[in-house]
């Protein structure tokens, strides 16, 4: 009985989590324009999508902004994480709190405050401010993926490298960096995902007609739901899912490998 209840409960949760997305995906292949009616399978909306100039421009913006923001935030975040790691415990925990706060902060607050900042600095809202905002909210994710890798590091590794004749700089590039590279890489992917996914902060900090995909979806939806939106959202969903899988896969694989290895 309890087993039955447990299963139903899990089933309901999964249902509410995934049915909307499933509907979205199904309707993106629906030949009928009206929602709720299945008019047969078609790829028409996907074809239309790639003929739409506005959408293609938004796609390019999203990719360029995503890659730029991910690259910059990875660099800043990784250096920041290394700095944090070398701090004393008390300082580190305090600063970590400050770094994590923006992630918990409501996006709308982040968006509005960034907008205020740009206006106060007389920065014209547009491509640049969009990139800056994305860099800002991506940094904590990078720090969070790099820091655990640093903590896992044997604290004697840099000393061992110096002992064998490496200068501190050589020790960093030959020993520390290769070891935390997986963390840096997953930080990059995570930042890219967050950037591609973002709507709220982008909405508040863009201007001059610079639109990314999520803003384009929003404006299209305001003008009336077009099945193209379903197709576009499906693509975004699949891409984001793929990126997240890429971020988590190495970890999962390692855990499995560990579990299957006999205890030492």
């Amino acid at each position: 009985m309890t087993k039955f209840l447990r299963r139903t409960y899990m089933g309901l949760i999964l249902f509410f989590l995934y049915v909307p997305v499933l509907l979205l995906v199904v309707f993106s292949f629906n030949a009928s324009k009206s929602r709720g009616v299945w008019g047969g399978f078609t790829l028409q909306w996907y074809v239309d999508l790639f003929k739409d100039r506005a959408i293609l421009a938004a796609l390019r913006n999203t990719l360029v902004i995503g890659l730029l923001a991910a690259a910059i935030s990875t660099l800043v975040g990784a250096v920041g994480a290394i700095g944090l790691y070398q701090l004393r415990r008390g300082w580190r925990q305090g600063l970590m709190g400050l770094v994590n706060l923006p992630m918990l902060n409501s996006e709308i607050v982040t968006g509005v405050s960034l907008m205020l900042l740009y206006t106060a600095m007389n920065l014209e809202l547009g491509f640049l401010t969009l990139v800056l905002s994305h860099v800002a909210f991506c940094i904590p994710y990078v720090v969070l993926s790099v820091l655990p890798k640093l903590r896992q590091l044997d604290p004697h590794l840099p000393e061992a490298a110096q002992d064998l004749g490496a200068t501190p700089t050589q020790a960093f590039f030959k020993v520390i960096l290769p070891d935390i590279m997986p963390g840096i890489f997953s930080g990059f992917l995570l930042a890219l995902t967050m950037s591609i996914d973002d709507f709220v902060i982008s909405f508040f900090t863009t201007g001059m007609g610079v639109q990314n995909l999520s803003i384009t979806v929003y404006t299209m939806a305001k003008r009336g739901i077009s099945p193209k939106i379903n197709a576009l959202s499906t693509i975004i969903f699949v891409v984001v899912l793929g990126l997240l899988a890429a971020v988590n896969l190495p970890d999962l694989r390692r855990k499995n490998a560990k579990a299957s290895r006999p205890p030492v």
Binding site: D154, A160, D163, D179
Partner: peptide, 27 residues
Amino acid sequence: PYKRNINTVFQRYALFPHMNVAQNIAF
């Protein structure tokens, strides 16, 4: 340390995990 003609075997070995045995020794 890198200018001393002295080498250390650390208590927990501190081998470089991303290198194989030969690469470790050849460091």
